[in-house]
Design a protein around this nucleic acid. Structure first.
Lengths: 160, 160
DNA sequence: CTAGATTATTACACATGTTAATTATCACTC
DNA sequence: GAGTGATAATTAACATGTGTAATAATCTAG
């Protein structure tokens, strides 16, 4: 099945907004986050703080700041500040790596784990709402395509 | 074609990161924006400033602040500040609506139009790179799915 | 042991998110 | 037509984030 005629670039030489990938990703994300934000606000978490907690929870082992920033799509300085905040709330713990004292190993505290596991099921309800509206299989496909796109664009193989 | 087995929620009751829609949208957007950002930086534009310019350019007529904010996925106060900045750079012009003096009609200045039309073709090259990696038809499908998702989630029909 | 590289934090300048307050104007009613 | 409530936009205030650069601490290699 063809996707139909592709709109030609406008006379002005700029892609129409509908054809803007970053715009489409942003508005889709905004519409999804609107459903999740109240829940995070209830727990006094910003999106970025939540991304850090979630990333730590997903990791099987403690993470250093660099990899953590990369995985959570944040800059290292931002992560540093976020960690300072989360540490003051006793949601994470830092351990200095034995073999290399520069490195900090970050992991969730028991309290941090509890928080993530408290929020998890709450967010699951929202996912069910999303799947009810958009379709389960369809969402799975979309997630795979997004992951594939990310992989292909991350690859630094810029043209020679 | 089935999408295969869906990972069950983890024992901890939280969706794996791969299954997080906001996360997937964010990382995809990040990987795309990484390709565009240098171009915007060259023109001293932030992503948000660019979204405003692009939105104005896409509109057939001047926009008021409210609709502009909505279309660009920004909050009105942010748009106010961005407009102050863009106005000081002579990229936009404000006109007070004749029939309602509260309303401001924002449009691109000639200089603003030129800038958008200068950047447009530059960004087109990046799109071609994206399509080369991801596929043209595939990108079209993704854009349609994102648009559909946005529409379905924007709808305030929360369950009764 | 020292020079250079690496990890993380700090510093700084700036932009944005977010809520609330403020200003100006409009629309409507008495 | 004066007063009241609604509306559009801005401003304020504060927290937080981004992005670059500088710094501190530590490691690694010669």
């Amino acid at each position: 099945m063809s996707s139909g005629p592709t709109p030609a670039p406008t006379a002005s030489g700029i892609r129409s907004i509908d054809q803007s990938l970053p715009m489409a990703l942003l508005t889709a994300r905004e519409s999804a986050m609107r459903l999740f934000r109240p829940m995070l606000a209830d727990h006094d978490l910003t999106e970025q703080q939540w991304r850090v907690l979630r990333t730590l929870h997903a990791s099987s082992e403690p993470l250093e700041v660099g990899p953590l920033a990369e995985l959570a799509s944040l800059l290292a300085p931002s992560v540093s500040r976020i960690l300072a905040n989360l540490e003051s709330r006793h949601l994470i713990v830092r351990t200095v790596a034995a073999h290399d004292q520069r490195r900090a190993a970050i992991s969730l505290s028991a309290q941090g784990s509890s928080l993530v596991e408290l929020i998890g099921p709450e967010s699951e309800a929202t996912y069910e709402e999303i799947e009810r509206r958009f379709g389960h299989e369809r969402l799975q496909l979309l997630l795979r395509e997004l992951s594939e796109l990310t992989m292909l664009l991350a690859n630094p193989q810029t043209e020679p």
